[in-house]
């Protein structure tokens, strides 16, 4: 009963805030709604008994990705009013695509209702006693799924190399920290004693 109530509350919030992500006028508001969507989805994961995935969703998506989005949206100088200009023009076509997708999803759901989905025999096996789902993910991640795990690592590496290739520029005249030079600097190189005449003072230009 309580679980059912929690499901409906979380699911409603997720759907409504998902809708608001696309319709919100300000992109910053969109990102905030997105964070709420992620949070509700994490709640749904907890209801399914997948606490680890729920925490991952919060830590990775809310903590890192959404905050990064927020930074990007705030820092980029994009004219969002102009970006929305085509909204009314593309609405009919987008509406048709959306309706087709909706019809397809309904057909797929009907197929599920008719018992076409994976049978109960294929449902995930219950966890053995005394093993949390974090542990059970850890057990297969580096054994059964080592191939995918390593390959996904290479995908991330390629993304990193790509970001560097496309954005790193060598500029002339950029000062860089040189630890050896800093440590080897002696007092005589850096400090000079000049005598100032009494009463006249020293002008800053004379010191250079």
């Amino acid at each position: 009963m309580l679980q059912g109530l929690a499901f409906y509350i979380l699911a409603t919030i997720a759907v409504v805030s998902g809708l608001l992500v696309v319709t919100a006028r300000s992109p910053v508001h969109s990102v905030l709604w997105l964070i709420l969507t992620f949070f509700s989805a994490a709640g749904l994961f907890v209801l399914l008994g997948a606490e680890f995935l729920a925490m991952l969703l919060v830590v990775v998506y809310v903590g890192a990705v959404a905050v990064l989005f927020l930074f990007v949206v705030m820092m980029l100088d994009v004219d969002f009013v102009r970006l929305r200009e085509g909204y009314a023009r593309y609405l009919p076509l987008a509406g048709i695509v959306a309706i087709i997708l909706l019809a397809e999803m309904i057909m797929v759901s009907l197929a599920v209702v008719q018992g076409g989905a994976a049978s109960a025999a294929l449902a995930p096996a219950a966890l053995p006693e005394g093993v949390s789902n974090t542990q059970s993910i850890g057990r297969v991640l580096y054994t059964d799924y080592i191939y995918f795990f390593q390959a996904a690592g290479i995908v991330l590496l390629v993304a990193m190399i790509g970001a560097i290739v496309l954005t790193l520029r060598k500029r002339d005249g950029v000062l860089r920290q040189d630890l050896a030079a800093q440590a080897n600097r002696r007092r005589v190189d850096a400090v000079e004693i000049k005598s100032a005449t009494t009463g006249a003072g020293v002008k800053p230009e004379e010191l250079l």
Binding site: A151, I154, V158
Partner: peptide, 29 residues
């Protein structure tokens, strides 16, 4: 090429997807 090799010898939807992403990301760049 690693990704394309994965695609050529994938027997599973996950290796299919990872192979595709690995080579596409490199090609986008």
């Amino acid at each position: 090429s690693v990704g394309m090799g994965m695609m050529a010898s994938s027997g599973d939807l996950i290796s299919l997807y990872i192979g595709i992403e690995m080579h596409s990301l490199a090609l986008y760049v």
